[in-house]
Nucleic acid binder design. Structure first.
Length: 481
RNA sequence: GGGUCGGUAGCUCAGUGGUAGAGCAGUUGGCUUUUAACCAAUUGGUCGUGGGUUCGAUCCCCACCCGACCCA
């Protein structure tokens, strides 16, 4: 017990294990028990009244030991508060235990009464101390916190303990999804769950993750979108449904991409893309207000509505759509837009759109009337069948929400899916097509990229800041990840 | 995949071709209103990994690993 003290990694652990052992010998469980009747610290501070008895619990983050008295800060989920102990406020043995056997990071329960210090800080004078959990490893720097990005993501729990901003952003992300759910439910939508493991990965164009079911000896894919199952529910008679959950795409990782990400999809029978555009606008305006958005974007309604062709013509020239194939490619290069050598005309146009329109759009803008080649699952426009009834809501340079009038003609659907799959019939979800043949009501559908929306509303610069545990390559020697 | 930057004590960071330093955390002592508490003393490092150059490498070179950003 009196070995050479040092503070390198494992020795620090050994030292704290010894303290835990000593606590046990004193009849104190260092990893305590349920501790009920506590008041959130934020509430203690709000309803502060000197002399009032309170019970709080939380993690000790700082400590100032002054001989016969001591101060510390205790943090719970809601806030932190200073506690004061002295030989007079708690039994002498308890005071000694606090001084000698607690460490920064320990989770403590405190019974005490409220008072104000000389310097005016609202504090708790401890009357009794309860060990709830001993921390065997040290906290990051009390002043600088944890700044190493890699470690912040790998050990998110430390980030959450010491970096209030990180905690606030992530908390807000889940408050946003809670609010979105409430918004849909108030308007009569039912939240549903459909398969994440699918025999055919449909509903989007993306590389799927592959997995295998042993008992059925069946290759399955993690879903890239729930769309085809949600539409089966429209066939089955559900009229207003949404699903808010994870999709998986086996593609690159970047500031804006995580292989698993959260998507909301909603379908509304007997509606169309236009009704849904108004719905999405209401939702986003509501969220911006509810979460007191104060960034650079202007969320005041109505959002701009611009036709795809008009937007492209504005940046690429009024004559863009009357150019020949070669002229168009030349113009695109002049504009600094890159495209694949074998790109179709509409693909070159789409590159122009993505780089010069979408990428430059800051305030929420609906782009509508997209060319049908881009969106195989949407319904053709009745005035111009080369267009589809679709919107793309773009905010801060990224597509946040696409919305469609869904294609419900099973024959046309089959043709488009076949064209999209490059003629590979095995990639067709025959079961979905059969469902459509039973009749799907005309409907509007939308998606909302929840991570991106959360980034915009919280001002986060990276998708990793709105995901608790973003995917990282596991460090060699560590399990899992 | 390409480019740029980074990886040094538990955390935050300095630093040098001659064998590594600060602050915080830790340990010991002092201190009954502190709050980045303070005062005194003190422990702690395969300098990301592996090669190479060199009398000598944490530093220079090469490869690799991990991460961030930009580009594709």
């Amino acid at each position: 017990m009196t070995e050479q003290p040092d503070s390198s990694g494992d020795s620090l652990l050994a030292l704290r294990l010894n303290k835990a052992l000593e606590l046990k010998q004193l009849g104190i469980d260092p990893f305590g028990h349920s501790f009920t009747g506590t008041i959130p610290i934020s509430q203690v501070l709000q309803e502060f009244a000197e002399g009032r008895a309170v019970r709080i619990a939380g993690r000790m983050l700082t400590r100032r030991d002054m001989g016969k008295s001591a101060f510390a800060h205790i943090q719970d989920e809601s806030a932190k508060i200073q506690i004061f102990l002295s030989r007079d406020s708690v039994p002498e043995q308890e005071f000694e235990v606090f001084k000698r056997l607690t460490d920064l990071g320990d989770i403590l329960g405190i019974d005490g009464e409220l008072f104000v210090t000389k310097t005016g800080e609202r504090s708790v004078k401890a009357r009794a101390l309860h060990f709830l959990s001993k921390a065997l490893r040290p906290l990051p720097d009390k002043w600088h916190g944890l700044t190493d990005t890699e470690q912040r993501y790998r050990q998110r729990y430390l980030d959450l303990i010491v970096n209030t901003e990180a905690r606030d952003v992530l908390r807000k992300r889940f408050e946003i999804t809670k609010e979105i759910r409430a918004f849909f439910e108030q308007r009569g939508f039912l939240e549903v769950e459909t398969p994440m493991m699918q025999a055919v990965a449909g509903g989007a164009a993306a590389r799927p993750f592959v997995t295998h079911h042993n008992a059925l000896d069946l290759q399955l894919y993690l879903r890239i979108a729930p769309e085809l199952y949600l539409k089966r529910l429209l066939v089955g008679g559900f009229e207003k449904i949404f699903e808010l959950n994870r999709n998986f795409r086996n593609e690159g990782i970047s500031r804006r991409h995580n292989p698993e990400f959260t998507m909301l999809e909603a379908y509304w029978a007997y509606a169309d893309y236009d009704l849904f555009a108004a719905f999405v606008e209401d939702l986003i305006v509501h969220l911006a207000r509810k979460f007191a958005y104060s960034g650079p974007l202007d969320f005041s309604p109505p959002f701009a509505r611009v036709r795809y062709r008009d937007a492209v013509a504005e940046v690429a020239g009024e004559d863009w759509f009357s150019l020949t194939r070669e002229q168009r490619r030349e113009r695109a290069k002049m504009l600094g837009v890159e495209f694949a050598p074998d790109a179709e005309d509409y693909e070159v146009t789409q590159e122009v759109f993505e780089k010069l329109v979408e990428g430059q759009t800051q305030n929420p803008t609906f782009y509508t009337h997209l060319p049908r080649e881009l969106v195989p699952l949407a319904k053709a426009n009745s005035d111009d069948p080369s267009l589809v009834d679709v919107f793309e809501l773009v905010i801060a340079g990224v597509e946040v929400s696409p919305g469609y009038t869904e294609l419900n003609d099973p024959v046309a659907q089959r043709e488009r899916l076949l064209a999209q799959s490059g003629g590979e019939t095995q990639a067709l979800d025959e079961d979905f097509l059969q469902a459509l043949e039973h009749g799907m009501p005309p409907a509007g559908g939308i998606g909302i990229g929840i991570d991106r929306l959360a980034m915009i509303l919280t001002g986060a610069e990276s998708i990793r800041d709105v995901i608790f545990f973003p995917l990282l390559r596991p460090k060699s020697g560590t399990a899992g990840g």
